[in-house]
């Protein structure tokens, strides 16, 4: 059987849900960050699939934007997590509770 657009979209939706689950359920900042990348890549997969099956290359250009932005986000994010670890010796979200009421 030839995989069609619905198959790619199903995989993409699955990836997105897995990423969202990871962000919500996991407690380590690094794993949450990886899950966020998974969500972005789910969008990439959907865009490429739509481009391929609709014969419209604009979606693939958008993918390049997303990859670039994700790289910038990772650079800033990892630097921030390292700074947090130096300050607090932790990278768990439970320990980020000094700001409240």
């Amino acid at each position: 059987m030839q995989p069609g657009l619905p198959h790619y979209l199903a995989v993409s939706a699955l990836l997105f849900s897995l990423g969202l689950l990871g962000v919500i359920a996991r407690r380590s900042l690094l794993v949450m960050y990886m899950s966020l990348e998974l969500m972005l890549n789910a969008a990439n997969l959907a865009l490429v699939a739509f481009s391929r099956f609709n014969q419209n290359l604009n979606g693939q250009v958008m993918v390049f934007f997303i990859i670039t932005v994700a790289a910038a986000e990772v650079a800033v994010g990892l630097a921030l997590i390292v700074a947090l670890f130096r300050k607090r010796q932790t990278s768990h979200v439970e320990d980020l509770a000094s700001l409240k009421l």
Binding site: F16, L36, M39, A43, A46, A49, N54, G59, E73
Partner: peptide, 20 residues
Amino acid sequence: LILGATASAFMVFGIALVFG
């Protein structure tokens, strides 16, 4: 960072569906 990136991920996926 975490909440903003989650919101961005939602938006990107939304844009993918809108484009599609």
